[in-house]
Amino acid sequence: MATRTTTQHVTTATAQSGTQKPTHPTPGALVVERTGPLALVQDAGRFGCRHLGVTQGGALDWISLGWANWLLGNAPDAAGIEIAIGGLALKAERTLRLAIAGADLGATRDGEPLAANGSFTLERGQVLAFDQPRAGLRAYLALPGGLEAAPFMGSLSTVAREQLGGLDGRGGALRVGDRLMAASPAPQGDEQARELPSSLPPMPADDTVLELVTGAQIAHFDGASLFAAFNRPWQVDSRADRMGVRLTGPVLRCQSGGMVSEGIPLGAVQVPPDGQPIILLNDRQTIGGYPRLGALSPIACARLGQCAPGTTIRLSPVTPHQARTRYLRQLALWR
């Protein structure tokens, strides 16, 4: 039976032939005291398994997760906690170095405010708490070495719909009493002195531009629809989750008939019969049959993951080369 306590690797002192083996430092742990609407274990996601009908999962704002990990010297795709909207409270079992990045959820340490982006020390018995969104929707918490837990299909990412990943291995959100174990006792080298670059863009606000790589079916949309798609504002609908985000705005018309279902990439912009686009995200289904304008770039997907309902966005077409160049540029910042 799966347990919700992560495995802790400790070398205990034992006597053999009259000698004592040294005890190695024990990684710290956090205990969940209060949960918010949705606090999930996430890493970069699962890859190489969509032919089995298993979706990608992973952090919606993979950039913020990467920066939180960078602050501690972790690999950018190391598992952390995606905290949506807030409400989470964690108590330290021992002194632990942590980092947060992404949305400003009013984080506090024993009631004292913490910066929305940075690393800090949580002493034994202290409580890290997140309130409500002030800017953005999702904050990411990183632990030294990442989160220690048993992966499934190469990932710890939680996908509730498919009941995969997370601490329990069944796609469950964090619950009161869960223990989050760090994979390493402490950050290495000079990571405690790291600070995020001041040039990082702020959390998305109205008129956020999201870059879109156009797809093969774009020629089936009439001229008026294409003009509206890229020259009119769109609003993020309240019907938004980790599977996808609906946009409201001008009605788009596609002239093609029925389609055979095909694979859906991250950020695919599907247009159902009502003409209102749906942008499909990490927990999307693996195939679909609606025509698509194209797909958001990886950078744009991360930005959309921080857009609150009601946010006004605009779509801007880019080439695959432009989208790839900006993606690789982001990865290079963490080297």
Rank of each mutant, 00 (worst) to 15 (best):
L167V: 12
D168T: 15
G169M: 09
R170T: 15
R170W: 08
R170E: 15
G171R: 06
G172H: 03
L174K: 05
G177A: 02
D178T: 02
L180V: 01
L180W: 03
A182K: 01
A182H: 01
A183D: 07
P185R: 01
A186W: 08
P187V: 08
Q188P: 00
G189P: 11
G189T: 09
E191R: 15
E191N: 14
Q192H: 14
Q192P: 06
A193P: 00
A193G: 04
R194E: 02
R194A: 01
P197H: 06
P197C: 07
S199R: 05
L200E: 08
P201V: 03
P201R: 01
P201E: 04
P202A: 11
P202D: 10
M203L: 03
P204M: 01
A205S: 14
D206S: 03
D206T: 04
D207Q: 02
D207S: 01
V209I: 01
V209Y: 02
E211D: 15
A219S: 15
F221T: 00
D222L: 04
S225K: 06
L226T: 07
L226F: 08
A229D: 08
N231C: 07
R232G: 03
P233V: 12
Q235L: 13
D237G: 06
R239Y: 08
M243D: 13
G244F: 12
G244Y: 13
V245N: 04
V245G: 04
R246T: 12
T248G: 06
L252R: 07
R253L: 01
R253E: 00
S256K: 00
G258A: 09
M259I: 03
V260Q: 10
S261I: 05
G263Y: 03
G263H: 06
G267M: 07
Q270K: 10
P277L: 04
P277Q: 05
P277F: 09
I279M: 06
L281Q: 11
D283Q: 05
D283E: 15
D283L: 03
D283R: 00
R284V: 07
T286P: 03
T286N: 06
G289D: 08
Y290K: 10
Y290E: 13
P291Q: 10
L293G: 07
L293I: 07
A295C: 13
S297T: 15
I299Y: 08
C301V: 15
A302D: 11
A302K: 04
A302L: 10
G305P: 07
C307Y: 12
A308R: 14
T311E: 11
R314Q: 12
R314F: 08
